[in-house]
Design a binder for these strands. Structure first.
Lengths: 310, 310
DNA sequence: ATGGGGACATAAGCTGGCGTTATGAGTGAG
DNA sequence: CTCACTCATAACGCCAGCTTATGTCCCCAT
């Protein structure tokens, strides 16, 4: 019948752009199109038209307009919550990308391992920006050696490394532990086990793993005593996750890489007994040069709001 | 010095749009601008220009171009992972919004409680689309009463409800449990406790809660034996989370609402002892009308890839 | 009751971003 | 040496979204 429109495009054609989503969040929060428009620095007609075209695009009424304000419809509330998650991911992107660009005016230069730079640092930077909006941060991502080099050459003010050892010449404090966990797709037999796995089972089962030499692989192998049987070897955490999601087999990866997948049961965590699958995450700085100023502020955030280290 | 550009706009001006992010992911996966362009159904010059303007916008080189392909730079890999999370959130938005619109041609009509519709269903629908791309789904979100009405009026094929009781006239199967958890900002004294909380402590401490009558509030109060002392009462899970993030106090909310906040330690989970803070999530259908066809497919996904119920 | 003010809608015009086609230039393989 | 592949550049067109200017509705205060 009415096969007039078959968008058949990428997501971008079916999902409103970030500006529209921000607008929707503002409308939800402020209860008025006009006020939301003002907050975003656009005019009221622009906001009106934008919300309208968003509704047209989605085929769903999002806001109830009235002569004295606008409130979300039920569907609008649902859509707004999904929108919020996009915007939050965009904030992470933004603060991360902003730190990546080399700025000469950075007041705080951070060097961090990949895992930390990817998963943890943006959150800290968002929190830091909330407290100290004027602190421009620059980020360099690399392995422990790189981080140490930068710090010792005074090209970074604060570093973050993962793994069992602290590079020479640096003082360190453990800020958290990264737990590796075993996951499978929900259909896998392990997902129905009642007893935790033990080391022997884990070592004797082919697993989806990062490549040999990677941080997570090292932790696993040292925990198992040198043995780990790869089912597939992949070069990024993301690839491991995708592979596990597709049901290829059990995977071992950092809990940091799992978000919704666990709570929505798209992946199932398999308990493991008697194997210490974790590694320390440490903040580091040149021996003696205890972090001060912005570095100290950031360090405070990483340690759970306790500003003093000591 | 060079204060030429101060974007000073919303996120939308600093974060590339979804089309650009999808393009970046395709380039990362395929190793070539041209191939990525083809996959997205645009021309190679369009892709080239888009990636270039994204690099200009971010001030970071993302891909190394060579006469025989393009690979991500180190910074590009990081940016791409952040981009992936935006795109994943956009997929959730897309599949959810698509289901919300009333389609006459829906092959599967679902009625679900808010929590399930918001957090769980999109993931299931993405999985369902992967297996049965032709299944058009429509979604109606509402409380248990609404869900039951729709099912009994044959206006929905499958329902999802949360809470201790199964509405009359429906058969049900428990598909999961929603665990309520107690969280605080990392700076809160509870975050440093070593012993789990007990019921008495929980009941005697003012908490950030949903309003009286809400599902999560009911679970908490029945678990505590009727008592719950609100510090603030808020009308959405999201508001509770924001409030907890800002350090207003301990909050009780569904683990489904927490994503990164926990693993990145922006919120800390406080263990609780001797209180059963969970509620069953159930799939429901009219007594006797065992789900078949698409409804059965979806039901299978919710139960961890086991297609057969029974 | 009557005007003022807030909220949203509509209309007309401009602009810029992104797309297209057409072409050029560099590299490696047969 | 030519083909096949990569990416870059140029010239042009379209449309989404912005703006300003106006209209309508409703509530409230005088």
């Amino acid at each position: 019948m009415s096969e007039l429109e078959e968008p058949r495009g990428g997501l971008a054609h079916r999902v409103p752009d970030l500006g529209a989503l921000e607008l929707l969040l503002a409308v939800a929060r402020l209860g008025s199109l006009g006020r939301a428009a003002r907050e975003l620095g656009i005019t009221q007609p622009a906001a009106s038209s934008r919300v309208r075209s968003m509704e047209r695009q989605l085929g769903v009424a999002l806001v109830d307009r009235s002569p004295r304000g606008s409130r979300l419809t039920d569907a609008g509330a649902l859509v707004t919550d999904w929108a919020r998650r996009i915007v939050e991911a965009a904030e992470v992107f933004d603060v991360g990308a902003q730190a990546l660009r080399d700025r000469r005016d950075s007041r705080l230069r951070v060097a961090a391992s990949m895992t930390i730079a990817e998963y943890l640092l943006p959150g800290w930077l968002i929190a830091l920006r909330a407290e100290r909006p004027d602190t421009a941060v620059s980020l360099l991502a690399g392995n422990s050696t790189i981080v140490a080099e930068r710090l010792l050459a005074d090209e970074a003010d604060l570093g973050f490394v993962e793994g069992p050892t602290v590079p020479a010449g640096l003082d360190a404090v453990v800020i958290a532990h990264d737990h590796l966990i075993v996951v499978t797709a929900p259909g896998h037999p392990w997902a129905r086990r009642r007893r935790p796995l033990d080391a022997a089972e884990l070592a004797s089962t082919p697993l989806i793993l990062r490549e040999k030499g990677s941080g997570t692989r090292q932790v696993l192998e040292s925990a198992l005593g040198g043995l780990a049987r790869p089912l597939i070897e992949l070069s990024s955490t993301t690839a491991v996750k995708s592979s596990a999601l597709s049901g290829a087999g059990p995977a071992v990866l950092s809990e940091l890489a799992l978000g919704e997948e666990l709570s929505a049961r798209r992946l199932v965590r398999i308990p493991v007994d008697g194997v210490r699958l974790r590694r320390a995450l440490r903040a580091v700085w040149p021996t003696g040069h205890r972090p001060a100023g912005p570095a100290r502020d950031l360090l405070g955030l990483t340690r759970g709001g306790t500003p003093a280290v000591d």
